[in-house]
Design a protein around this nucleic acid. Sequence first.
DNA 1: GAGCAATACCTCGTTATACAAAGTATACAT
DNA 2: ATGTATACTTTGTATAACGAGGTATTGCTC
Lengths: 112, 112
Amino acid sequence: MKLDKELLKGATETVVLAVLAQEPSHGYQLVQLLKSRSKGIFGFGEGTLYPVLYRLEEKGWIKGEWEAGNGQRRRRVYRVTSRGRRQLVKRTEQWAGLARGMTLILGGPAHA
Amino acid sequence: MKLDKELLKGATETVVLAVLAQEPSHGYQLVQLLKSRSKGIFGFGEGTLYPVLYRLEEKGWIKGEWEAGNGQRRRRVYRVTSRGRRQLVKRTEQWAGLARGMTLILGGPAHA
DNA sequence: GAGCAATACCTCGTTATACAAAGTATACAT
DNA sequence: ATGTATACTTTGTATAACGAGGTATTGCTC
């Protein structure tokens, strides 16, 4: 099942922040982490994730640093800043609120 | 807590379908139903909901009928069509998928 | 050393949506 | 008559996810 594009709006930044908070990563790696950690539910492409990273960095919620190439291809590793962590808390609360509302509407008296 | 605009994208049509499936309503009533049934979590305004209703009707998922004014102001009551009910099932599955993915990412090894 | 796959990054155009704000008009109570 | 709640409608703005295309490097294999 491929997730609806619109449904993901607003959630993408949150999962990116969450994964980076657990493990600093570069863009390409993030694509794979998001897929594996969500058991294949999320399948973000690079065309989605790189712009998200730039956005988050511009807002000061993550910080990227070029990793010197020790035989590796150069890559930019992103870490969550302290402001970013506060944001992650907020976003998580937002998500919980939405999830609660959805449950109330979808799972409520509908099955009565 | 006011829910982020972007986070709601894609979810709005689903909750509208869900409420209408439970109780055919007109637009103005829907504003209140969504608010009360979600215990205040959803606060959609008319400028959001009416366009949603038009969209859903155009797609054939709901059907509106003008209710003749028996002393009442004229109102358009919307009902979910059979195609709309199938859509609701799909949307609900989509939502469940997203919720599962979010839980995996947010609630997983983060608190380890 | 040519070819190829995987890695890693970047950018553009398209499309869809939530919302505020403003407007119109009716019913009803005071 | 004045106001309030009801009820519908439209416009403009901002944002975001994605596909598709592009560049460049590394390392493997023949």
